[in-house]
Design a binder for these strands. Structure first.
Lengths: 146, 146
DNA sequence: ATTGAAATAATCTCGGC
DNA sequence: GCCGAGATTATTTCAAT
């Protein structure tokens, strides 16, 4: 994991469709060497997968909210219950007054209300506190530099 | 934007390296037709870019926290100030008691303290409230289905 | 909008450094 | 670990429907 690897990751984060020849040129390596480096980054699990970023609004998910989920019980093995709600994009166990923080994307604020209803249906959930996003400044990949 | 498009998006989210022949086969189309559909999804901006997902810990960003940023002024044009902090992965203007919600990834809790310091240095920021993630249940792409 | 096939360009393999 | 070239496979274009 040297600076060349980090640079390759940064380049792939920007555009994972570019050819290995172009990647190699950008870091001063041959196409084969760049390919070999990326292969190893995948093998070691540093690069988890290649995926596409989608416009949420185009998929009918224009409303973004973060919901603090309070619970009256240990929620450490409740991942599946959150996974079952398709509008939930992320779920994290947190330290603080709430227990779980979820990131929700849905079509409308009515849809958000419905998500909250399904959250309350999860075993142990005793309360929710939703915060609606008015504007997203940015969402970007984890920086491999700095 | 029909069901075939949504299915193609779901397949690409799982693995954007697969060949158009395989994509087409999965949705009952020829490679050329699948390619044409994906090309149009990109053109219309539904697919924003192809990227790689990275293990944050492997990049020295094993600590995840969400920070509510309170302000004494309108923060609607402060995106650049948050962009300038590389540990900040997302920043959203929110409705509620705080003004901006940021998602932070850094190496250690000391690093988090340093990020908070830089947040306070931003014009108009009057307070922060950090919540550390103990465990991430999951992070997944925006579902094109359901 | 989809097909099938031809032209172009990429990935992948491997002997050698 | 990197290079370079050859073999393989995918992308991209296009005429026709």
């Amino acid at each position: 994991m040297d600076d060349v690897d980090r640079e390759l990751i940064a380049l792939l984060q920007q555009d994972a469709t570019q050819a290995y020849a172009a990647l190699g040129k950008a870091v001063g390596l041959s196409a084969g060497a760049a390919h070999e480096r990326v292969r190893k980054l995948r093998e070691r699990g540093v690069i988890r997968r290649t995926t596409v970023e989608v416009d949420p609004a185009a998929l009918g998910r224009g409303v973004l909210a973060f919901v603090m989920v309070e619970s009256s019980a240990w929620m450490g093995d409740s991942a599946d219950a959150f996974l079952a709600v398709p509008e939930i994009q992320e779920a994290h166990v947190i330290a603080g007054s709430a227990s779980v923080l979820v990131k929700v994307r849905c079509a409308t604020t009515e849809g958000l209300q419905d998500v909250l209803r399904r959250l309350y249906a999860i075993e142990g959930v005793s309360g929710t506190q939703a915060t609606v996003s008015l504007e997203t400044f940015f969402e970007r990949p984890v920086s491999p530099r700095a």
